[in-house]
Amino acid sequence: MPSLTAPPSLLPLYLKAAATGPLHRGGDSLPDSVYTLSDQRIDPAHLAAFQQVCGYRTSDVLPPTYLHILAFPLSVALMTEREFPFPMVGMVHVANSITLARAVRSAEQVSFTVRAADLRPHPAGRQFDLLAEATVDGEVVWTSRSTYLRRGKSTEKKDDAKRAELEPQQGAVSVLRVPGDIGRRYGGVSGDRNPIHLHNLTAKAFGFPSAIAHGMWLKARTLAALEGRLPDAYTAEVAFKLPVLLPATLSVSAAQQDDGWSLDVRGAKSGKPHLAGSVTVPAAPTSTPKDKAAATKKAPAKRAPRKKTA
């Protein structure tokens, strides 16, 4: 299994993805590779840049989707494997669920594993999950499940019923103005430089009327708007609906529920859905304040020297 101590470079992987696209000829199974990346130090300047682009406060606490971008190169490496059934170009990120077990801080060294699982039908083709896990000293602190769709023939019957009329957005609603260059900005900090996000011309080449926002940026921005309202441990699960064509003005609803928050992002004028999901807060605290203090103290002392090669 590929075991890395430094993240793979994305550019060669993208070139590989583009060049080898036609070689991925389907198949009914996913590779069982497990990619691991050990003991990653957090670059404070990179963290601050990410926080700024996503609307987070500059802080030592890692936003939950920050860990996603650290694991992202492993996902790309996996999806560009020769045995992977689909070409990476053209895959659609349809959902993401992140569970944060506790606050992860920039002084900690985080290790990642990524694998693919659960190839299954989708009404518009086939879908599978990329499962990522982050650990600190062997303790699972974060897990993520990203669901991707490969459009094509489906064995699952399409729901013929017309799309149900959307209920009005719940609770207090905020307006979010998304600048036209957000795809380039987020691409810069995340490394996800998919051409559909970068420029209108490159997006048009892939059939979009203009550049579209990264789904994971929208998720990060929506969670950032809950600043001060979220505990250290929670699950944030979202489905990405219609792409956000840039620039955009969005209407963001985050409404409090018994067990957390419901999230609902739509076009401010069009009313079209872009993101729907929830934040679920565990009923009982997963750690006592005493444990937390101990964990924070322990982390810097355990810093191990960084290995140089894979």
């Binding site: 609770g171 207090a172 609603v173 905020s174 708007a225 809950l226 309202r229 985050a254 409404a255």
Partner: peptide, 10 residues
Amino acid sequence: DYVHGDRKED
């Protein structure tokens, strides 16, 4: 809490 509170009462 006009940000996340009740649309009418907050």
